[in-house]
Write a protein that binds this DNA or RNA. Sequence first.
DNA 1: ATAAAACCTATTTATTTTATAGGGTAAAAA
DNA 2: TTTTTACCCTATAAAATAAATAGGTTTTAT
Lengths: 138, 138
Amino acid sequence: MLSKKTKYAFHALTYLGKNRDQKTVLIQDISNEYGISHKFLENILLELKKAGILGSKKGKGGGYYLIKDPKDVALSKVIRLLDGPIALLPCVSLNYYEPCVECKDEAACGLNKVMIQVRDEMLNVLENKTLADILDKE
Amino acid sequence: MLSKKTKYAFHALTYLGKNRDQKTVLIQDISNEYGISHKFLENILLELKKAGILGSKKGKGGGYYLIKDPKDVALSKVIRLLDGPIALLPCVSLNYYEPCVECKDEAACGLNKVMIQVRDEMLNVLENKTLADILDKE
DNA sequence: ATAAAACCTATTTATTTTATAGGGTAAAAA
DNA sequence: TTTTTACCCTATAAAATAAATAGGTTTTAT
């Protein structure tokens, strides 16, 4: 399951995507819209900014805005940023690989092979679908 | 990510599948093989038994054994049993559905639609691959 | 100057996962 | 029939992670 952090990130991105006509959007507006704690959302937006997805402007009249084209924001990127690995096992993660401690021989692990398949099927959707696809349907 | 519980369940099932020639296998043997706490594993095997995947025999010479044909144990069943939902959002879970609290209109949610796709791709593997597929590769 | 807003770091609280404890119960061997 | 063996069950504790909060700092428009 995705964490609330990731879910909130998607909500925020959706909101910002819908309001691209505005120069900036306040954290407050987004947290009001979805009933998310202001401070919690603040941390999330900061991460999205550090990742180069959002831009911001400080001071009066400031706020956040989408810096990337929605079609260039893959869903996988957002999930990895806030939640970490997409794969179901650390030993098949592309971005957060770790061997399974109890596994003697990864090459001979049947579970490993199936989970690679699952990962690839997930990525097939999550790498190709973007924020633009979400916005389309709203 | 799958929990350790689920991972251990797969290890145990693999071990039992490999040793189907024996009448029974001791918890101790499995926990030794993978370095899993005896008591923790005990709980997991019990759940697998309640779900009709394993059988057991009490008393001296007792232990656990596979009651189902490995090809009839879908990976999805094991995951749902120990971990719960496979879907990435509660609002797209087939077996553990719950609406997202912050979501006003599920039918108009773009994220919902994409996550249904992800779920279906995952299930396409996890429902069709079974314990037999894992055993094959070991 | 002042007010408004993002920025930053740390801490606390809550929840979930993992593990442990300790006995109860059934079955089989001797 | 006694004893051993190992499953069965419930409750609790410890650890890890996720979620939320706190309080100050910096920047900018007016």
